[in-house]
Design a protein around this nucleic acid. Structure first.
Length: 486
RNA sequence: GGCGACAUGGCCGAGUGGCUAGGCAGAGGUCUGCAAAACCUCGUACGGCGGUUCGAAUCCGCCUGUCGCCUCCA
């Protein structure tokens, strides 16, 4: 059943090609995605990345893979500004907010999950914190020193890039090029400018520091992902994801550390999502043009004229491919909102209908079209187009009185893809109050029916208009009046 | 400077060497007390210039434009 005609192919940054997806140990799949550095509110760019990988996760599970999804929380500050002289991000934020770095990390970890929950992003199976894995990181650094891939100077430990012949295989960057870059700080104790820190000795006043064989200090940024992915997914695993901008240096360094430490291939498939742009510019924290998710949800931002529901944001993002840039505009959001509303309306109509006298619906062709779209490197935009086509056709049949004889089966599949894979099921129907609301609206419909029978159109229009104000849309059809709640 | 992407109809946005993407907006029609919804119908787009080909928006080259990475960043 899982193999209609096509099989899942994913674009692997390592080969720069689409490759047939074949897990190392089927049906198990290990997936690691770089999580946020928790020193600020999550913005639309985070949403694109994590919604994309959420659908990737959901689709893999739809294909019956047993996925373990690990996403780190970076709660150790990393350096700000140029070279190694900058200030720790979390420490800086802590100073600005007059609190402790761990308090900052806790606060933004909370808001991160809050916002992701709102976007209907499934929680990772494991969300390891960098600060909770200092011993693992130290152990990895020790291994690298033993194997001659790292060296210690003045309490600092650096990875020696020239000791790794494969360095650059992900980003296509060569050593000579890195060295020629004039913007690389050379005034440090590193042997070579491209060497990167595994452990840094803490300055006086540095707030986050730990004991290590080399100094009181803190780990380099890249080593946390290597150590934690190794701990929870093993020395080799299937998928590593993250934002395009992490390709270099972060992911390149992860590969170097992990492969030099373990002597085997680190990750089989590297997946990178593209950026969200705003007026053609990358949206980013450091660029100061980021609109946070909370601001979208409340509408409280100078570039927003109103608030936008989380499901609209999710749907909007899924309408473009994860490897394409997504250019944000309120016009585009509005189009997405209307489109989603129509999709929900179709789903609701189908959900309310029952098996009818019509021909059986070809669920297999539905499934095949959807799988073909998603098998092509998780083409969610195409997948949504397939949903529209089939939902439209189904609604047409139902409206024409020829509801398919196997509608139950169709509904089950719709639930699987719309809810299970895309995560865009209509919300707000199902809680206890819904029944009361339905009853009340039904009552008003009855009253209005009498008014219409008496040609009291003033009253019937008032009922309809006032209900619309409340977000309830009445629709008069041949077989009576139906309604939709916003 | 080095490396790498992208340029599709009013807007958003998929895509394959030859066949309707899809969504939003718009036009006409059916239905209706009126409306809404639904249903039916409608747009023939692919940055520029060359080349390959029977045929290219889809392959190659050049040009123009936009963007990303090379520094923390989803």
């Amino acid at each position: 059943m899982a193999d209609s005609q096509s099989k899942l192919h994913v674009y692997n940054t390592l080969s720069r090609k689409k490759e047939l997806f074949e897990p190392l140990n089927p049906p198990f799949v290990g997936m690691y995605v770089c999580g946020p550095t928790v020193y600020g509110d999550a913005h639309l760019g985070h949403a694109k990345s994590y919604v994309a990988f959420d659908v990737i996760l959901r689709y893999l599970r739809y294909l019956d893979y047993k996925v373990r999804y690990v996403q780190n929380i970076t709660d150790v500050g990393h350096l700000v500004g140029n070279g190694d002289d900058g200030e720790d991000k979390l420490a800086k934020k802590a100073r600005l907010e007059q609190s402790d770095p761990m308090e900052i990390a806790e606060k933004y970890t909370y808001t991160y999950f809050r916002d992701m929950d709102a976007l209907n992003v499934l929680r990772p199976d494991i969300s390891p914190r960098a600060t909770g894995h200092i011993p693992e990181q130290i152990e990895m650094i020790e291994t690298l020193i033993e194997k001659g891939h790292a060296y210690e100077v003045n309490g600092n430990v650096y990875f020696e890039v020239s000791s790794d012949p494969d360095y650059g295989k992900l980003s296509g960057r060569k050593l000579e090029e890195a060295e020629s870059g004039t913007r690389v700080e050379t005034a440090s104790d590193k042997k070579a400018p491209e060497d990167f820190a595994l452990w840094k000795k803490a300055d006086d006043g540095h707030l986050m520091k730990w004991h290590s064989p080399w100094s009181e200090g803190y780990p380099g940024w890249h080593v946390e992902c290597s150590a934690m992915s190794n701990k929870y997914l093993g020395e080799s695993f299937d998928i590593h994801g993250g934002g395009l901008e992490n390709q270099f240096p972060h992911h390149e360094c992860e590969i170097a550390q992990s492969e030099c430490a373990h002597g085997k291939e680190f990750v089989k498939y590297w997946l990178h999502n593209n950026m969200v742009t705003l007026e053609g510019q990358k949206m980013g924290k450091s660029l100061g043009n980021a609109i946070s998710l909370e601001q979208f949800f409340t509408g409280d931002h100078r570039l927003l004229t109103r608030s936008w529901a989380p499901e609209v944001i999710r749907f909007f993002l899924l309408q473009s491919h994860y490897r394409s840039t997504t250019d944000f505009s309120e016009d585009a959001l509005e189009a997405a909102e209307t489109g989603l509303k129509n999709l929900h309306s179709m789903v609701n109509t189908i959900e309310k209908a029952e098996n009818g006298p019509g021909d059986a619906y070809d669920v297999e062709s539905f499934r095949s079209a959807f799988d073909t779209a998603m098998n092509d490197d998780f083409n969610s935009a195409q997948g949504i187009a397939v949903l529209f086509e089939h939902l439209k056709e189904l609604r047409k049949r139902i409206t024409n009185g020829s509801s398919p004889s196997n509608l139950d089966e169709v509904k089950a599949y719709i639930r699987k893809v719309v809810d299970g894979v895309m995560g865009i099921w209509p919300s707000g129907s199902g809680d206890g109050k819904a029944d009361v609301t339905e009853g009340l609206v039904q009552l008003l419909i009855e009253i209005r029916k009498e008014a219409r029978a008496n040609k009291d159109f003033a009253l019937s229009d008032k009922i309809r208009d006032d209900l619309k104000e409340l977000g309830v849309q009445l629709m008069d059809g041949k077989d009576g009046t139906t309604f939709e709640i916003d």
